[in-house]
Design a protein around this nucleic acid. Structure first.
Lengths: 269, 269
DNA sequence: CGAATAGTGTCTGTAAGACACTATTCC
DNA sequence: GGAATAGTGTCTTACAGACACTATTCG
């Protein structure tokens, strides 16, 4: 702040001389319940879009953008956010088309979060209601690079408030591609997990069945993806099978070689 | 806008009830000159950071965020921005730490742009001066995943205004990784180009020498990356060599298989 | 016992990188 | 002619995916 002339300039500067713009954060929190990918939505208790479902979020206060996202996330889930082994939070992108909010110009910085299965959100929640929705029952529009069939159950026409459908589609694609190049699949499971649990994460997020044997070998062959916990599960699977070895996430932050989604060659166009 | 009760609510809404926040865009425009990657910087003509170098940018008006970026880009370069075969522009991320701008809370949406070699920026420029800087002479701090040696020439200590150094580092990494998975290297060259010119792009951006023969075969083997223009250059290279075939960019928007940067296995940590 | 699951072995096709080599053009 | 470059051939190694198979555990 030793830049000459700047102090004088700042004293005469009027922050309200420009049209009002608000900055908010919205969070797409993904988790896996019952082998299906879910996203947390809140029912809006106030105008605009009162009574409709939306991504959790709110206006940014005197804090970092990421802190704002973490704060909103914690207030909805009750879970402390950026802890090691806890919820993963990363910036997705910013959505600021004029008119996306009828009140005024609102520029929203969207975040994506990955969490292990959490208890149902209820207490301590600002919103009228908060609930996890299965992704494949939301009837999301087919995104460019996915050939997800639209399996929207009749009557489940969940139109989201604002432009949150578009944000959610982008968030979903981010989530899917992050699993290819990073070990973040582990943030969907507990601290210790089996290779099968990890495979369930990939299958739920990608919406595809993976070959169990090849997946097993592949995960163990990527350096730093997982490390053995030197333990096994207490019991075999409920439908039979041997006890599985337990693993912890390793020290890699990039998977090399990556775990690529199957059958995407045709999506080059 | 047929949501019940919302119209009445909006009438009583006061946009100025919240602390003032401004939204700006900043653009990292990369281009290749003389076989080296350059970035466009402007010398600030006004406070704050008057006289220091910064990424081009400005406040968002009543327009899309991307339109704001395109407008600022055009006003600096004189080049119309989002045209086919023209400049590629994509959102990078948003930087909004409190205090990053001494005037007030400014949240900046950063964009990355790739352009073929353009004439020197001068006319029609808002800023006092605009100039292309070679990336490897800026003395950028070593980023997490790159092992760029700091080759900062003594006296060339180009500290950028605001948090633009950080934005530029992120933009550079985005640029490098985009070349792996997309055909965007072609946006650094003209409409028709040789495989060697394309290789020069990769070498300039990645800062590594590539094997000419293997690169050649690889590019031609990726479906939809390039298509033949059924022509050759008029002359061979200035230092000898046969005439090269000319190509145009193909219809792929994703490279499969990808062109991965060499020697990144050790960066998993 | 039968079914389901964990984990391993093996084979095939593809791809990346190393290296060598020819052909063409500029100076 | 000499040097530089365009483009191809070939070999080795690594990896993804298909398939088969064994071992273990639950009901």
């Amino acid at each position: 702040m030793e830049r000459p002339g700047e102090a004088e300039y700042l004293e005469t500067y009027d922050p309200h001389a420009y049209p009002a713009v608000a900055v908010s954060v919205d969070i797409a929190l993904f988790t896996i319940r019952d082998r299906h990918l879910h996203v947390l939505l809140v029912k809006r208790g106030e105008h605009p879009y009162k009574g409709e479902w939306a991504l959790p979020g709110g206006f940014v206060r005197d804090e970092t953008l990421e802190a704002a996202a973490a704060r909103e996330l914690t207030s909805e889930t009750g879970v402390p956010c950026p802890g090691p082994g806890g919820i993963h939070l990363e910036q997705l992108g910013t959505y600021g088309d004029p008119g996306r909010d009828p009140r005024m110009r609102v520029v929203s910085v969207a975040y994506v979060a990955f969490a292990p299965d959490l208890p149902d959100p209820r207490e301590g929640s600002d919103a009228a209601a908060a609930q996890y929705f299965p992704i494949d029952e939301l009837g999301l529009p087919e995104d460019v690079r996915g050939r997800r069939s639209i399996q929207q159950a009749p009557g489940t026409s969940t139109r989201l408030a604002f432009d949150h459908t578009r944000i959610l589609v982008d968030a979903l694609e981010r989530c899917r591609s992050k699993l290819e190049y990073t070990p973040l699949a582990a943030s969907f499971v507990g601290e210790e997990f089996t290779i099968s649990e990890l495979r369930n994460v990939y299958e739920a997020v990608w919406g595809e069945q993976l070959h169990a044997g090849n997946f097993h070998r592949k995960v163990l062959s990527v350096p730093g993806f997982v490390e053995s916990a030197e333990k096994t599960t207490e019991r075999g699977g409920t439908r039979g099978g041997p006890r599985a070895k337990l693993y912890r996430v390793g020290d890699a932050h990039l998977l090399h070689p990556a775990l690529l989604r199957p059958g995407r060659e045709d999506e080059v166009r």
